[in-house]
Nucleic acid binder design. Structure first.
Length: 398
RNA sequence: GCAGGGGUGGUCGAGUGGUUAAUGGCACCGGGCUGUAAACCCGGCGGGUUCACACCCUACGUAGGUUCGAAUCCUACCCCCUGCA
């Protein structure tokens, strides 16, 4: 009775930090969790085997509505049985709604009450994305977690503009909710999981889950209002959007610190698009359960490694003869096998393996960091962990 | 040997009397990247002093010369390429 799309249970907490278990129709996800970004049906620069390997063990990754809608198109993916079967990724997926592209594609779009008119960045043709279309595409993708279609204001948006944007997001949230429910009733969800294949004892419905998003830029009152409007509609989880989009350093921590404790305790809290290793720790400490960010993959691809002692630019000449691994305390496949000198050589030679290996290390570092965060919270040791981790980051790569 | 063509900064290659320390490309060096229009983007790149503006020195095969001024014109020499013997 009363089956839900996802389950969420907090198993330990320390201050605002929480350790929990998110149960999806495609597996359990321990939180706090970092979700690698797989915009176009691929986590760039890595293979699913590598994402599933013991040193990474990603349980959930992202996909993007806007990008997959443009190419290959929702029809292609639903014809192939949804995004899981299309890509071969059998674990959980969260799809972003395309709301972020409304912001990041800037000049290529025009926003109206009805939705957003885009110039496709692929071929220039005019496209129209609305809450309804976004829900339809995400149903065709068949992800475990669907994001509401929102509008992300610039990080430094003044109060009136931010309020207008936030209210539009609230209206779009309601429309997202209604269209999502209609699509679930009509069984449009391409990723639906039969009862016999659901995680044992999970008591799930096998349907998709829908998350709402709070906006409001850096304005505390707008953030509060946005959250209460979102909670009023009712979602399976709640996200904080519109951070790390150009706002002043420190605004993000303040907004998260004020907002997360007000979010429903029984639901997962997702901070969208964040962040650096330090951001992850600091926002876990403020009550966030879920994160995603392109940093480990993008920066890995472009030559920057994240380590326990801070960032390392593998292209620098100083590593040319360095036989040590990227991070001497890292147990990932790359650090167990390859030297900085070799990785630098691959980058200077323009060999794609360099990007692949740094991407893997970065993902392993992020995911392992989150594993350690969960252990620390469960053992009541998070405060010390946080302090030591932060000290390590600023100590500098030798 | 004769006749043409050519020798430019790490490299390839523009420039044929005056904002020329010298366009570009590559190489090299450094920086950036936060719900991915990104295997990408930006900057530096003769040496020295200076926080900086700026200043000084050395540079277009070698050595001379013409000129207010030369990588650019003239002379000699050295070297390379092509063709003919």
């Amino acid at each position: 009775m009363n089956k839900r799309a996802i389950g969420f249970e907090v198993v330990a907490s320390e201050g605002e930090a929480r350790a929990g278990v998110l149960t999806t129709r495609r597996g359990r996800v321990e939180t706090p969790v970092f979700m690698p970004v797989g915009t176009l049906g691929t986590v760039k620069g890595t293979r699913f085997e590598a994402l599933e390997a013991a040193d990474t063990d990603a349980r959930i990754i992202l996909g993007n509505t806007y990008h997959l809608w443009l190419r290959p198109g929702a029809e292609v993916i639903s014809a192939c049985g949804g995004l899981h079967r299309f890509t071969g990724w059998e674990r959980a997926l969260l799809t972003d709604s395309g709301g972020f592209q409304v912001w990041s594609l800037g000049a290529l779009r025009k926003i109206t009450e009805e939705g957003t008119r885009f110039r496709s960045h692929v071929d220039g043709r005019l496209c129209f994305l609305s809450p309804e279309v976004s829900m339809q595409v995400q149903a065709a993708l068949g992800s475990e977690i669907v994001m509401a279609f929102d509008e992300c204001a610039p990080g430094d948006a003044p109060h009136d503009a931010a309020r207008e944007s936030m209210l539009l997001t609230a209206r779009w949230a309601l429309r997202s909710r209604r269209e999502f429910d209609r699509l679930q009733r009509e069984e449009a969800d391409a990723g639906r999981v039969g009862e016999s294949h659901l995680p044992e004892g999970s008591n799930l419905s096998g349907a998709q889950a829908l998350f709402g998003i709070a906006q409001g830029a850096g304005h505390s009152d707008l953030r509060r209002e946005s959250l209460s409007r979102t909670v009023e509609i009712g979602f399976d989880g709640y996200a904080i959007g519109g951070l790390s989009v150009g706002e002043e350093k420190g605004v993000m921590y303040r907004v998260v610190e004020e907002l997360a404790p007000q979010m429903p305790r029984e639901s997962p809290r997702y901070l969208m698009g964040v962040g650096t290793p330090e951001d992850l720790i600091e926002c876990v400490a403020r009550g966030v359960d879920m994160f995603d960010c392109v940093l480990p993959t993008r920066n890995g691809r472009t030559g920057q490694a994240f380590t326990a002692r801070g960032k390392l630019n593998i292209k620098n000449a100083r590593w040319a003869r360095d036989a040590r691994p990227l991070d001497e305390r890292c147990a990932c496949q790359v650090c167990r096998r390859h030297s900085r000198a070799y990785l630098r050589h691959l980058f200077t030679a323009g060999e794609m393996l360099g990007s692949i290996l740094l991407t893997h290390h970065n993902l392993a570092f992020f995911l392992d960091t989150m594993r350690r965060v969960r252990q620390a919270i469960r053992s009541g040791d998070f405060t010390r962990f946080r302090r030591e981790f932060t000290e390590g980051l600023v100590s500098g790569v030798a």
